[in-house]
């Protein structure tokens, strides 16, 4: 029982990182209708930008905040310079995905050109261990979990209780109608990329802290877990991505505790397959995003 409780605790810590990234990914897709595979490389960029700031002896959490802002701006620029022109030219949904795949690879190699292919480390940022009721967390994990919770609550408030949030939801549901209602959808899209970019930046730094050592493949190798979480929750659904992240994180840690750890990662894909077979729309989907996928 102790092992199970510990595994759930570890899973929550891992799931918080997955959720942080998955929510950004899901919001981006839900509102701007782009399945942005460059997201993984943006996380890698965040890790290296954070690493650079860390060399200035800044506090790691301040580094996370600054990096989030930088990646947020980079995301908007990326959307404006590459994806929006493609969409204006009528590039298909799949065509845009291919463009993001390509851009992700280019970004990876740009990162390699600057920092090399070797591993880097944020160092021992985890802090002391805190135990309660058989749960064991490091202070870093607690801060990451806390940050995730705060950002998720903030996102919820933004989406449900503010004018811009309602505009985002309207744009997500039907961009043409939203525009006809006077919503400046281009600005909403920009804001969405800014927001999701910030989450991507925070997730990249959180992941680099968690894994201790990382290289240029950090984000792209983690992307599939975020996709699994997003699909599990219902792609385009931020709340679903939160829950999906936790489920994937906890399931992989329980698998590591009770099954062969060699297959702890496989559990994410098993969940993904089962979900696609049983409930392709995901746990929380209203169907809009999935209809988009189906119509693509």
């Amino acid at each position: 029982m102790k092992l199970l409780i510990e595994a759930i605790g570890f899973g929550i810590a891992t799931g918080a990182v997955i959720a942080l990234g998955a929510v950004g990914f899901s919001v981006q897709f839900g509102i701007s209708n782009v399945l942005n595979i460059t997201y993984g490389s943006m996380m890698t960029l965040a890790a290296f930008v954070g690493y650079a700031f860390l060399q200035l002896n800044l506090n790691v959490w301040l580094v996370m905040a600054v990096t989030s802002v930088i990646v947020a701006v980079a995301s908007v620029v990326f959307n404006r310079l590459l994806l929006e022109p493609l969409k204006r030219r009528g590039t298909s949904f799949v065509g845009v995905i291919i463009a993001t795949v390509s851009a992700g690879i280019v970004l990876q190699y740009v990162i390699v050109a600057f920092v090399g292919a070797t591993a880097h480390s944020f160092g021992q940022q985890s802090g002391r261990t805190v135990s309660a009721l058989d749960f064991v967390f490091t202070t870093s994990q607690l801060i990451i979990i806390g940050t995730t919770v705060v950002l998720m609550v903030g996102l919820h408030v933004l989406l449900t209780g503010t004018k811009i949030g309602r505009a985002m939801r309207a744009t997500s549901t039907n961009r043409t109608v939203a525009r006809a209602c006077g919503i400046r959808t281009e600005r909403i899209i920009d804001f969405t990329w800014l927001l999701s970019g910030a989450l991507c930046g925070a997730a990249g730094v959180a992941l680099a802290i968690t894994t201790v050592s990382f290289d240029f493949t950090l984000g792209s190798s983690f992307l599939i877990y975020m996709i699994a979480a997003a699909v599990l929750g219902g792609i385009g659904q931020p709340y679903g991505a939160m829950v999906g992240g936790l489920v994937v994180g906890i399931a992989s840690q329980i698998a590591g505790a009770y099954w062969s750890p060699a297959y702890q990662d496989v559990i994410a894909f098993v969940i993904l397959i089962i979900m696609l077979l049983v409930r392709p729309r995901g746990l929380f989907s209203t169907g809009t995003a999935n209809r988009r996928l189906a119509n693509a």
Binding site: L3, A13, T14, V136, T210, F222, Q253, A262, Q264
Partner: peptide, 13 residues
Amino acid sequence: LTIPGDAASYSSV
């Protein structure tokens, strides 16, 4: 134990 490479966490293991 056999572990996968580059996982985000090995806490349970």
